[in-house]
Design a protein around this nucleic acid. Structure first.
Lengths: 152, 152
DNA sequence: TTATAGTCTATAGGATTACTAGAGTTTCAT
DNA sequence: ATGAAACTCTAGTAATCCTATAGACTATAA
């Protein structure tokens, strides 16, 4: 399951992507418009900032801005930052591989075999879909419809 | 993440698939061989039984058996029984659709749009991979290699 | 009739999730 | 300078979920 937190993060980013460029957006503004608890959103944005997706100005006239073009911010990255690896098992992750604690023999593990396929097909979608790709209302948005399961 | 419970369920089923046919297997046998806590495994097997994947005999000479051919037991079904819907959001599920509590407009929700693609590609893999498909050591097993992401 | 083996209900401890509180720091406007 | 506005940071907390465990109950074969 996608966490509530990750959902909030996506909503905030999409909101920023639609905001007037170069004009910092208040946390309370995002919180109100997207119905996200403000204090919780603070933590989320801070996290996204540390990972370079947004940046911020402090003090009066402060606020948040997207740090990159909406075409360059991908679902996969956001979800990894907030929820961790896309894979359903540590041993099936490519970006954060870890052996399973109770694994007998990884090479023959049937569960891993299947979950690697799942992780790959999931990553293929999430790492190739940007904010802009799903926004029908911004310039150059929704250009590429990624047919589910088709090769990229 | 796949729960520990679902992993145990898969291990138990794969173990049963390899067992001598028509000869009930003890819970303790599975528990020992697959290092699954016995009492926990009891709950899991009971659940799988209620869903028709295994059946059981009580009393002396009792035990568990696969209720279907290993070609007819799919990862998707097992995971749904133990962990619930494959989709990452209730609103992205096809087998257990539910509106998200805080959803403003489902038709334009960008997150849903993407997570529906993910759920579809995940389901395409998990609902088409059977126990037999991943077992290189049983007759007729591993017949079909599902190229990740390719059409079925 | 007794030992064996599955069935069922209840519960407990730890981890995670989704927040909340409150003090601290930076910046702008006056 | 100073005060209000806004982001930053560290804790803490309530509720829920996960991973079991305990123990009584029921069915069956020898």
């Amino acid at each position: 399951m996608l966490s509530q937190k990750a959902k909030y993060a996506m909503r905030a980013l999409l909101y920023l992507a639609r905001a007037e460029p170069n004009r910092p957006v208040l946390i309370s503004d995002i919180a109100d418009q997207q119905s996200v608890p403000k204090k919780f959103l603070e933590l989320i944005l801070l996290d996204l900032k540390r990972h370079g997706l947004v940046h911020s100005y402090r003090g009066k006239k402060g606020g948040y801005l997207l740090a990159k073009d909406p075409h360059q911010i991908f679902f996969g990255q956001v979800i990894r930052i907030i929820d961790g690896p896309l894979a359903q098992l540590p041993c099936a992750s490519r970006t954060a591989y870890r052996r399973c604690d109770d694994c007998q023999d990884e090479r023959t593990c049937e569960i891993r075999k299947v979950l690697m396929q799942v992780r790959d097909s999931t990553a293929r979608i999430l790492d190739n879909t940007s904010l802009a790709d799903v926004m029908s209302d911004i310039p150059g948005g929704a250009a590429r419809e990624l047919a589910a399961g088709a090769g990229i």
